[in-house]
Design a protein around this nucleic acid. Structure first.
Lengths: 142, 142
DNA sequence: GTGAGTGCAAAGCATTTGCACCTTT
DNA sequence: AAAGGTGCAAATGCTTTGCACTCAC
């Protein structure tokens, strides 16, 4: 797992340590196809290491974010989601407001809008860090 | 104030009532140039009507959202923001991840992307219900 | 051995809810 | 009079924090 080596390296760089808990969080994220909430990560690890605490999950997600291994996705439901980055090309998430289904599109779909925002406002949009709400095909015609 | 008439009309349509509190919330929003948090609304009204409760603010904002007079903006700080939108065309919000500044663009900027998502995935995106994270001009070159 | 990291419990904070009383219609 | 609306207080849910103990280095 190249992620883990990179993580270890970055930790050493900062005088931090690679613990069992940190490995578990990284692994849990690595196994997911879709973004997961902190609670999801917590639950996933529960079965392997029941003693792990929620606060450790939060602290580790924060750390991973800082290092740049993890992206936080701001959703419109209360909680935020996390995703290991680097495994795929940058992509944008959509969430169906009815069924909760998650869909993705390639970031380049937004290239034209990106340029408009850039030129008109000087705003550099970060598409990969958000979730587009909407209604999916299945829920649209029930 | 045409907002209030529209509000009154929509309330009647649903068998709901126009109360002093609801008028105050609408008024408070009407006076703001920029989006405000629920707490802001609460504070603004405090000086006029100190007995008004936070929960009433939340309930009223919810109601106004449902009616379509108010748009909710999901920011990156903890709290969300609200904005009266009956007076303008539907618009999309952007939040600077550094300074927290809120910017807006007209919804039609997204027309082309809307069609792409629609045709390729059958996904009907709801642009006005999301917030685009990014870096604003001011924070980009400090 | 030393300081970073953890679990635990408690605190924060924005928001929501249950309920008895009040007010609009 | 009836039903919707409000204030109050308590609860909720996600997240953060303080602290003493533990463990990676």
């Amino acid at each position: 797992m190249s992620c883990e080596n990179f993580f270890r390296e970055q930790l050493k760089l900062r005088g931090l340590r690679l613990t069992v808990q940190r490995k578990l969080v990284l692994e849990a994220l690595h196994d997911q196809a879709n973004p997961v909430s902190a609670e999801d990560v917590f639950t996933l690890i529960q079965s392997i290491e029941p003693s792990l605490d929620r606060s450790t999950v939060y602290r580790t997600l924060d750390l991973l974010k800082e290092i740049g291994l993890v992206q936080e996705i701001h959703s419109n439901d209360r909680q935020n989601y996390f995703e290991l980055c680097g495994t795929r090309l940058p992509h944008v998430h959509m969430v169906c407001q009815k069924c909760g289904g998650i869909f993705t599109v390639d970031q380049n779909v937004f290239d034209s809008v990106q340029i408009i925002l850039q030129k008109s406002l000087g705003f550099e949009a970060q598409w990969t860090q958000m979730t587009i709400p909407g209604i999916c095909q299945g829920c649209h015609t029930p």
